[in-house]
Design a binder for these strands. Structure first.
Lengths: 215, 215, 215, 215
DNA sequence: TATGAATGAGGATTCATTCAT
DNA sequence: CATGAATGAATCCTCATTCAT
């Protein structure tokens, strides 16, 4: 019985696997080389499939790029989202929670393919505005939305002085990640963990001074 | 005599002119197309010179790109720098001054080739870290330095509560420009002037809440 | 009983249906795109079958092409043949009959996939001479044979002065269709019906002058 | 002195030489393989230049094809034209002259790249009607025009009974070349010289019967 | 038998770069 | 010195053809 099910699902499963393999291979290749320098050959090779397979799955380099970016954005979103909703709202711990959240989000932005994401999207957004929109939908948008929600709840609890939660979320992210490009030399170098942490701490402090003035 | 002088200086002047022409032509081409898609042919054509001339002046596409970016950065720096040092330190007017400065700097980032600068630099920084460094030296660095100086003076005057002026400058820029990518869809669209202004205003307000807590 | 027969014949009938479907789908695709540009994918899709099915029925693109051409030739032959044998041999009407025949044959050559036939066959005849032979056997040959027969009968009746009926048939076709490529711009445009008719009329007139000199 | 002139003209001469070399190389390659199967690589190789050179001279495969066809048409035209205007108009010799002309024109059509010309043009005329037009302008058109002129002069001399000289020219060509495809198996085989000659003779005879009825 | 999936091969095109003039 | 001309290399993409199901 189980066998039957397996056999029945096999084609779909395989297709999904190959799709995943290609996306997983494409992300680092695009990340290292950028859109133009990345060759479909290299991606196909890294995925262990042939070039035409890539084309049959994604239609072309452009679409492959878009879907890869959206996929990475979803992955980053996934992790970041969990960090955001895990923000501790307890009056005694939310300050520490915001520090932790800042560090966590920054680490998400810095690690792996996520680091390349914003760089790539920004780089290609003029040639293909759709990619920007898609990534915002799949990644940045939901994160900011969730973060705005948490901050609003802190506002409702009287712990923060929030006027526009969206703006507050944007400012939180801006303050905590403002030094990231500098520290990683634009993504070309690994950032020292401690430097990142202290930069984030300074950002959170500023955020708290701006948005929890009474305390 | 004048003639002699002219003849004597002519080569150098011409050289400088051609160099300028090439840089001025390269900036928009790189800006529109990105590093890879920009062709040396197009740049040479736009500059009114031949391709080998470009090579004799700059050695290659890579170096031309670096120097073009540094040049644009210097130009942006020039304008931004003037805005920064024009910041009114008067106790009654520095808040309005910071608003104006935020708008001015944001407009500098948004207009012309400057808009493409950070995008291009970020895009190519991994493949060629030197470009990031060079642009920081020619553009971002001096600006932040100058801004830090002005903020420090406001701190010394007791108008702001500055601990680390460098950090404060970074935060000021981060807060005022945080919504810029969003508003311009990553550089692919023109931003509405009013939306930019209000976003900047919100950023400056937050900055002031964070750095002028007593007031 | 009928059921049994149906079941018994079903595979063969289906086979024949699919074969027909493929041939009918291949003709316009080859006709529009030419041999090289026509993709087996497109043909299979148009026929509603899968690519391997095409291969199992025809062995390969080359053979499919040959059989398609022969098939179209047979169809054109079918219609043209009827026109030829319908040629009125009556002494008072054979002249009008030849005019009608000329128009009918020309229309056959001009309409539908037949228009592409000679173009395609000529185009590929060097690479694959077999196709030329096959089409001649299936189409042009029989037509000319039948036409020669009718003209010979007109000769025997003393209405035409025929020496070699094959040559006369060839000349009849050449004269009536000589302007066809010109009028259709090589097959790329629709020919005006009236222009075709008058061109055919001139050809038939010349033919009659050449082969019915006494009258 | 002569040297100076040579040097002065050198660039143009070289350019013209290379252009010629490419056209001369392209004609047989296109002729053997057809448009699609002919690779720019092969043409460049045969011409002794590199692929980009071909592109810089002709812009692309399509344009190269058009210009090659037009060039071949011009060459064929050149030779054919000489035969046409050499047609002897003398009352006692024009019949023999027409026979000779028929043989000469047919030989022109059959030999070398000319044989491929009509095949190629016809094959690609649907995809690119411009090529048909261009070749007509460069080749077929002038020939028919010239032939029509000669025939008209024979008509004025009372030697032929010409109503529409254009039509007569078309009929002359049609009658003399009607058996050519058959004899060369669509261009895939060499035609026997004697067979061609006798086929042409029959065509000219028919033409004379149709257009010189009184004699 | 009929098919979805996969591939190896090949072609057009573009570009950064270097000589000969 | 500045240029027109030429090239080698590399990229995207497509297609005929074949397995495993």
């Amino acid at each position: 019985m189980g066998t039957t099910t397996d056999i029945g699902d096999a084609p779909t499963a395989r297709k999904r696997d190959k799709r995943r393999a290609i996306l997983d291979a494409a992300a680092p290749v695009f990340g290292e080389a950028g859109y133009e320098r990345a060759s479909v050959d290299a991606i196909a090779g890294a995925a262990g499939v042939s070039k035409p397979t890539v084309y049959s799955y994604f239609g072309g380099k452009e679409q492959l790029f878009r879907e890869t970016m959206a996929d990475v954005a979803r992955q980053v979103n996934e992790v970041s989202y969990r960090h955001v909703i895990a923000l501790d709202l307890h009056p005694d711990r939310f300050r520490a929670g915001l520090h932790e959240l800042g560090v966590a989000l920054t680490r998400c932005q810095r690690d792996g393919c996520a680091a390349s994401l914003s760089r790539l999207v920004l780089a290609e957004s003029r040639r293909d505005p759709a990619v920007f929109e898609e990534v915002r939908r799949a990644g940045f948008g939901p994160i900011r939305e969730a973060l705005a929600g948490r901050l609003a709840r802190l506002g409702n609890a009287g712990l923060l002085d929030i006027d526009d939660a969206d703006v507050a979320a944007q400012h939180f992210i801006a303050l905590t990640q403002s030094q990231l490009p500098e520290l990683t030399a634009g993504g070309s170098a690994e950032a020292d963990e401690d430097l990142v942490a202290s930069a984030v701490a300074l950002g959170v402090d500023a955020f708290l001074r701006a948005y929890a003035p009474g305390r």
